[in-house]
Design a protein around this nucleic acid. Structure first.
Lengths: 167, 167
DNA sequence: TATGAAAGGTTTACCTC
DNA sequence: GAGGTAAACCTTTCATA
């Protein structure tokens, strides 16, 4: 079983893996590794971008190196029915909220928050709690990471074919 | 207040921002935008990599395009004292676990899990629950994202100086 | 930090399969 | 549809100052 587009083959997989490991690898180098010309690699990358399999290329930074040392998840409980669109608007106003999603369970939403320190986090939390339709929040502070937050953290998504499948 | 290294200046900030927006931007192009030669940009990027401010360059993919359509957070409760090192070993055995951290609150750890579908997620969860020292898990399924999981999701970490500061 | 030249990468057009 | 080659153009790297 595979849910990838039919056109996603082994070569595409190798190209995406290479670009996840180092987004600045040249098409020529990738081509040399997989037996394709740089032109052919470029064409495939262009296609992968057009079909939104690859959504972009980014530099990964160590947040603590930039002074962001506090990280937490905040469960949000809303008054009455929480309209996701309204929540999305609110959430976009906070640069400290780096991810936000609606979830199953008691909470309506889960926010990932980064702050410079605990004082800063408290200030952000107070602002969030002051939003009109937010009834309650429960915060879970991140203490340490058991897996390095590496650039290739998602590379397992590209295991040869159906790795991770229940089999 | 800023916790960045003293040597991290406005030009570095602009360089990192440019590379987070597109990790394949040429040094010449970045230089033209900020008034530096491509050589100078390269030197700064090399230094930012050496000091681990930039930890890598990666292609961002849309997991659903690769057939990973189910996402959940799993709170893990351990028997007795949970040794983070032991937990870290276990967690590394699962390609489906894309992030894992120790946290405050009732749970000992929080796992971010990606699976192909709900069946696959259930299978992963069963394997996790069968690990010797895991007592209990609570799963929270992700329904929808309120913020796009964009390549530049972390760009707010680089706001001009102290954006997001309590002020 | 700037310059210039060599090496190498990217892009386009055209060709084959 | 797929990939290859060649040429023009651009980027990177390195030596030099």
């Amino acid at each position: 079983m595979s849910s990838r587009p039919a056109s996603f083959d082994e070569l595409d997989r190798k190209i995406v893996t290479a670009l996840m490991e180092n987004a600045r690898t040249s098409f020529a180098e990738i081509g040399a590794e997989i037996g394709l010309s740089s032109t052919a690699v470029k064409r495939r990358v262009d296609r992968l971008r057009e079909t939104d399999v690859i959504t972009g290329f980014t530099a990964t930074v160590r947040p603590s190196a930039l002074g962001w040392r506090t990280e937490a998840y905040v469960e949000v409980y809303c008054e009455g029915a929480a309209p996701p669109r309204r929540l999305a608007e609110v959430v976009r106003g906070y640069p400290e909220i780096t991810a936000a999603m609606t979830v199953t369970g008691g909470a309506d939403a889960l926010l990932h928050v980064r702050a410079r320190d605990v004082e800063h986090f408290e200030e952000v939390l107070e602002r969030i709690r002051a939003e009109p339709f937010i009834r309650k929040t429960i915060s879970v502070m991140v203490l340490s990471h058991l897996i390095p937050e590496s650039p290739e953290a998602g590379a397992a998504l590209l295991a040869p074919d159906d790795a991770g499948d229940a089999g």
